[in-house]
Write a protein that binds this DNA or RNA. Structure first.
Lengths: 206, 206
DNA sequence: TAGCTAACGGGTCTTGAGTTTCGTTAACAT
DNA sequence: ATGTTAACGAAACTCAAGACCCGTTAGCTA
């Protein structure tokens, strides 16, 4: 049996500090220079940590990004409740909009998505990240169903994804700035479609 | 004044053959192994071309991907016309769905999008690729406006983008298979929202 | 069809990302 | 407090991606 992963036996003090510093530095560099020109040695230098340590703990760039994502998934903001489906979806859309338009977070998300296209482990981490976010917001659609705003049997998760999708499309494929108007439009489109029963889950509902 | 780009003075015969072979090989490898483990030497070997040639003509991986995109943009399929907005949008959605779900094109698009996040030139090529596609399909929304199906002043391009967005979201962020049901739902959502006037361009219409 | 040279391609060299080694530091148990 | 060893970190090493050199092939022109 091979030895355990480093950082699991003595997670206190220094080990935790190193992880924080490296993830911080990785996020900074990812946001500044993007995924492609990313060098673990740079990260180590900026984090004030030995290059060897970064290679030993994370191994590859994608592994590091996966850990960064896991860290980000834990910091999910609580959703706000406004009392109407459109209000809630707009709140969600603006949260996403603010994140993607942010000068640090925007490039970071681009980089992370790019990393996920290459390696299965990172893709899994990214999927989990979005699952957490979508789970957080899906209840607002359920409340709309309970209020009778949206038909029974609607796939609540799909509605939330429909709000984010146009904003991510802009981030990656271009097609306009990611501004508040775009966010509101995405929310309105999703709300309108949901009310019309477009997101009814056919066949067996999950 | 520096010398011209290679391939511009004698574009006939061999030069064209080399370009075709290299782009073909690059697409194959990109689809098989993804953007991250992409090696220009591999491409050269598979294309039956000297490694030096690939480096001289394209320089970097991202430069090659940009050229690949320019090549793909020229092969835009003509749109079909069904006589109704929903029918046209469904046709578009299924075209996108078929492309992204395809075992060669799907990974290729992932790779190309990943490449575009890193370098401005590739991002520009990608944006142009989608502009061509969106321009091709936008008239079907205009026809819907003329028929009175959709309100005057609707941003036709934005409707087309709204159809693709959920499918690309699935490709990159997960959240379900890219099947015909997802395509139809995307088309229905966009059509419903468009009819409700969600995509009216506020302020100055472009 | 002959000459000119753009463009190709085999071979060699360089550089830096990633690995290995081994001595040092500090977390945890007693 | 003190011992054990997990985890860190500086330096030396490896090896392949990518740059360079220069002889060869073949588009283009007259």
């Amino acid at each position: 049996m091979e030895s355990m992963e480093p950082g699991t036996v003595r997670p206190g003090g220094r080990t935790a500090r190193v992880r924080t510093a490296v993830l911080q530095a990785a996020g900074d560099i990812l946001a500044e220079r993007g995924y492609s020109h990313l060098d673990l040695a740079d990260i180590a230098r900026r984090a004030g940590v030995g290059k060897t340590t970064v290679y030993r703990r994370w191994g590859t760039v994608t592994g590091l990004v996966a850990d960064l994502l896991a860290d980000m998934a834990e910091q999910s903001l609580p959703r706000t409740e406004t009392g109407s489906l459109l209000g809630d979806l707009k709140a969600n859309a603006r949260l996403v909009q603010r994140t993607l338009a942010d000068s640090r977070q925007g490039p970071l998300f681009k980089a992370v998505i790019a990393a996920a296209t290459g390696e299965a482990r990172t893709a899994e981490a990214l999927r989990h990240f979005y699952d957490v976010r979508v789970d957080e917001w899906a209840p607002c659609v359920q409340q709309a169903i309970d209020r009778g705003e949206v038909p029974e049997g609607t796939d609540t998760h799909e509605v939330i994804r429909a709000v984010s999708a146009p904003l991510y499309y802009r981030l990656l494929a271009g097609g306009g700035r990611i501004d508040v108007a775009a966010a509101d439009r995405a929310a309105e489109a999703a709300a309108t479609a949901a009310r019309a029963g477009v997101f009814l889950s056919e066949g067996r509902p999950r």
